[in-house]
Amino acid sequence: MNIFRLAGDMTHLLSILVLLLKINATRSCRGVSLKTQELYALVFVCRYLDLFTNFISMYNTIMKIIFLASTFTIIYWMRFHKVIRVTYDREQDTFRYQFLVLPCLVLALLLNSEFTVMEVLWTFSIYLEAVAILPQLVLLQRTNNIDNLTGNYVFLLGSYRALYILNWIYRFLTEPNYRQYLVWISGIVQTIIYIDFFYYYIKSWKNNEKLSLPA
């Protein structure tokens, strides 16, 4: 574990905490994409099947459980909480799951390092994570008045990905035989998806204006 990896994981954790806090404190999930949260739930379920088969470290196990539990909590609130669910922008959050899930599944079946159920599902989760933020970005673009915390949530998620790239560079330079091309390419794609958002986020922060994404 290097400092970039730890910082990346902590940023990821913080992003989820910001989202939980926003929804819980304001009793509103306005501007939050349920589709993105459900895609993340699918990502975590497929990736963390090894919770049952392979122990890596206490740290890994606890983080995996936190990511799963927090994502399912957010989904539960958005779908079933009697106050919160009313604030969900159902009509705006129209991205179709199948446009992301099916191509990622096909790609995982074709491009993986081992053709086993566990490994294909793990690879699927890597591909799906790369694009799971898209419904959230589309929803933000349609939201006129983006909540500060929602903006911060997406910014922290993007930062987590950027820190993981630094982690991979560090590991590549320090660990012999450390290579994972599929993960690197997906991670780079995932980070590129955020660049446009970063540009407007930093611009609004510099000018002390409210964040808004041009359509």
């Binding site: 890596i56 470290s57 890994n60 490994e119 793990w122 450390y178 994972q180």
Partner: peptide, 10 residues
């Protein structure tokens, strides 16, 4: 990917 160690990133 060194599979025998499992995937150690989150």
């Amino acid at each position: 990917i060194p599979k025998e160690d499992g995937h150690d990133e989150l």
